[in-house]
Simulated scan of single mutants.
Amino acid sequence: MRPPAFWAAGPDHPAARALAPVGAAYGALVARRMDRPGARAGCPVLCLGNFTLGGAGKTPAALAVAGLVAELGAAPAFLSRGYGGRLAGPVRVDPAHHAAADVGDEPLLLARLAPAIVARDRPAGAALCRSLGADVVVMDDGLQNPSLAKDLSLAVVDGPAGLGNGLPFPAGPLRAPLARQWPHVGGLIVIGDGAGGESVARAAARRDLPVHRARLVPETDDLAGRRCLAFAGIGRPEKFFATLAEAGAVIVGTRPYPDHHPYRARELAALSEAARRLDAALVTTEKDAVRLPPAFAAGVRVLRVRLALDDAAALRRQIRGALGAP
Rank of each mutant, 00 (worst) to 15 (best):
A161F: 15
G82Y: 11
L68V: 07
P237T: 10
L271K: 03
L154A: 05
R175P: 11
D35T: 14
I189K: 06
A214P: 14
A295R: 14
V30H: 00
P258A: 07
Q318H: 15
L152K: 05
A99P: 08
A61H: 03
R306L: 02
S199V: 14
A195Y: 10
A232L: 05
P11Y: 00
P21I: 00
L278V: 04
A101G: 15
A205Y: 02
V118D: 06
A230E: 14
L282H: 09
V91L: 15
R215G: 14
A77R: 02
P115R: 05
Y26K: 00
D141H: 09
A61M: 02
D208K: 14
P294T: 06
H13G: 00
G84M: 09
L87V: 15
G84Q: 09
R277Q: 14
G23D: 00
P14G: 05
P146W: 09
L143W: 01
M1H: 13
A9N: 02
G225H: 13
G186K: 05
A20I: 01
K287R: 12
L19K: 00
D221E: 14
L154W: 10
R130T: 03
P210E: 08
R316S: 15
T243P: 01
S80H: 04
G248C: 05
P44S: 03
G187R: 10
D193Y: 09
L109F: 07
R304V: 04
R213V: 10
A204V: 06
G194E: 11
L167C: 08
D135R: 04
P4F: 01
E238S: 12
A62G: 03
S80C: 07
C129D: 01
R40L: 13
P21T: 00
C228G: 12
V137M: 08
V156W: 06
P210C: 06
A249F: 07
G194R: 12
D259F: 05
A77F: 02
A126L: 09
M1Q: 10
G82I: 07
A298E: 13
P14Q: 03
A56L: 08
L19C: 01
G324D: 14
P44Y: 01
P90M: 08
S147L: 07
K58F: 10
L128C: 03
R120K: 13
V45W: 11
A41S: 04
A242I: 02
L268S: 11
A20E: 12
P210F: 08
A96F: 10
A274D: 15
R86T: 15
L167S: 06
T52P: 05
K58M: 07
A269E: 15
G197A: 08
Y263H: 10
H261L: 09
G162L: 04
M34D: 01
A101M: 05
R36N: 02
A8I: 00
V103H: 12
A25P: 00
A232C: 07
L268D: 11
S80I: 02
M34E: 01
Y83W: 12
V157K: 03
